[in-house]
Write a protein that binds this DNA or RNA. Structure first.
Lengths: 390, 390
DNA sequence: TTGATCACTCAAGCGTGTTGAGTTAACCAC
DNA sequence: GTGGTTAACTCAACACGCTTGAGTGATCAA
């Protein structure tokens, strides 16, 4: 009911689909809300809201959560999201692994898994996805019927571009229609995006960006990516490759470098290379941080300075309500980065009436991108779409 | 009928409003189109399209333009925009003048005017606007009833920001609700944006961006601004200040400078200052260009290099279909700039399957921003809006 | 107890789009 | 020419979901 409409539905049914999302989105955003308030917020009649609520409750997407008496009058019956009423699958494809998470309607994780990949070619990934689907079916049989769709996160850029051929992109996907591959392997509607945009959506559905419609997310993966949300919608670009901020030139004392040479996990790894460390993963970073490692300190200082310049560009080009930092970095390190990023005065974001900090730490932890993949789907369920068809 | 809906219209009426825009937008985009084709393009039944067409024709927004027989079958009755059926007013407020243009439904200029401003404070501007309205009423009495609204362009940034207090912004507007002021002075619905976004819309409605949904516009006013269109919608930012690209740092042989110090009309003016020129306006620029002025040549070289870096940033952050250059520069100079801008290889826009050049010259000439102001309104009439109310 | 306020329900009516069965006009084969 | 095919378009019923207006139940204040 919620996920798919027949190819040509009557206009009234499309309006209903729109209004359902509107109502569900408000219920999600407020946590608990009554019909009358929804009516005012959505610009619909109480009666219309009533009908929609009855439908949503019947389908198990929302549930009665209590009553609230505000002064006189009949106390409102409050409704909230029924977390178990539906779920969304998030899949993150990395060169070496497939990460997956199943999220309930509130964005809570029901199940997460990680499958090692020897090979990230489409055929190998397809095989793992099929296995994943079977695993889900047997581990959570009740869930499959309530699955709204699957979000997929892959390292960009998509298609052949001037940034192709770098270490980060996956082999064999250039010529492949990725959406098609995933749709066939998983058998549910697919939403495809890059890690940074997915992370941005994760924060919107569950984290620090709730209620925000214009913000940016600086995502630390292997490199650095930028997720953009404008007017509540992801900015994907003409070919889905928006947000490639890693190649932004930033000033250093001795010239200029690409942002990702200074402020990515890879860059830290290079700095530490001489010290005989292997791959610098999340846990290793935490350990270095706890030990007060000097090279890490140095990296933070350099990265913060570089990020300050990136934030300057982001703020002046997009005028976001806030810039969120997060991804595959321990919270403490992100916090320290944020505290050391020099915020330029000459920015449209430097306004006296700000209600939110210019930089915020993402709330969704190291799995942000995977959770965000699922959040792409949840966001759909909560936001009216523009197009007539879905 | 087209502009305003009653505060709470029935859902069916909102759907109609949406579908009307959809149909009208397609008619505008194709120039000439029959019902059946519209039906396929809009995802509506022929019958629905028929009803809408009857309504639009009745109101004079479209008109029959002929018949087309494509092979067998009954030849389609073609419809096109009826230019005189409605119009939009564009107003550009500059520190020293008020520019206005009245555009027909096809984006053709019916009337343009320029009023000198001694004073750009809100009260003075309001006075001029009232006079402008009277002038319109008497010069084009039939038009007032068909006025869809007025678009207004002002130099940003709006509100108090870290970029306030520069030479370009207007006095006395910081604390003013500009939209309110214009709505009262002109008595029609107002759409407010900065010059670059308006320019971008001008190109979408009439110029080189027709049919594009994701592109950027580098606008040369006094400084340099960036207009962004994503998914067919303007990217305004949280406070309407997106696109402030002038402060972007770019490399020079001897360090780094702000883009607008190298690639704006103001920067050229500074270069020429020693030569005893006054203000460098459009005509003066043309003359210098025709004379093959050496300083102009030098400026073009410097500006092109700076713009190359800006384009690099825009392409990688935004992945546009194309970047349009234009504004208050003679076409020849823009063309020469374009031919000399170094296009970086390391860009997501550097793709082998491009159908359009990475850089295009804007088509709307020196009045781009003023025309664009009116285009903001036309674009509304052609694009379905997301919000329920208008 | 009475009146006011507010959330919500019930039943009728309306605007739109869809469906399915015609109608008209072009092309093609003979 | 004639008949068949194709495609654009019209006409008349129908379905859907929202709105409207009247009515009910629960709470507070006088």
């Amino acid at each position: 009911m919620l996920s798919i409409l027949p190819p040509r539905s009557t206009s009234a049914e499309r309006a209903r689909s729109h209004n359902r999302r509107l109502v569900l989105g408000h219920v999600h955003a407020t946590g608990e809300i009554g019909r009358a308030e929804l009516s005012r917020a959505c610009g619909l009649t109480i009666q219309a809201v009533s009908n929609i609520i009855a439908e949503l409750e019947q389908e198990g997407l929302i549930r009665e959560t209590g009553r609230r008496s505000t002064g006189r009058g009949l106390p409102a019956t409050l409704y909230g999201i029924n977390p178990g009423g539906a779920c969304a699958l998030g899949v993150e494809v990395r060169p070496d692994a497939l990460l997956a998470a199943l999220l309930d309607l509130n964005g809570g994780a029901i199940f997460t898994t990680r499958r090692a990949l020897n090979d990230a070619h489409p055929t190998a990934v397809t095989q793992e996805l099929r296995a994943l689907r079977e695993e889900l079916k047997s581990a959570h049989p009740d869930v499959v019927s309530r699955l709204l769709g699957a979000g997929v996160v892959m390292p960009g850029p998509f298609g052949a571009t001037g940034l192709s051929g770098t270490a980060s992109d996956l082999p064999g996907w250039q010529e492949t229609d990725a959406r098609q591959v995933f749709a066939e392997a998983l058998g549910v509607p697919i939403d495809l995006d890059n890690d940074a945009n997915a992370a941005a959506m994760a924060e919107r559905v569950k984290g620090v960006a709730q209620g925000l419609n214009d913000y940016a997310y600086l995502y630390f993966g292997t490199g650095v990516g930028l997720g953009l949300v404008s007017g509540g919608r992801r900015v994907a670009g003409a070919f889905g490759n928006a947000g490639e901020i890693g190649h932004l030139r930033v000033q250093t004392p001795d010239g200029s470098r690409a942002l990702e040479e200074l402020a990515s996990r890879l860059s830290l790894q290079h700095r530490l290379a001489g010290r005989g460390h292997g791959t610098i993963n999340f846990d290793r970073l935490s350990a270095l941080d706890a030990a007060g490692d000097a090279i890490l300190e140095e990296w933070i200082a350099t990265a913060a300075s570089a990020l300050g310049q990136a934030v300057h560009v982001i703020e002046n080009l997009f005028d976001p309500e806030t810039v969120i930092l997060g991804g595959a970095l321990p919270e403490r390190i992100v916090d320290r980065l944020i505290s050391r990023v020099p915020l330029p005065d000459g920015s449209v974001s430097n306004r006296p009436d700000r209600v939110r900090a210019r930089l915020l730490r993402g709330d969704c932890g190291r799995l942000t991108a995977t959770l965000g993949a699922a959040a792409l789907i949840l966001d759909r369920a909560f936001s009216p779409q523009l197009g007539a068809l879905d």
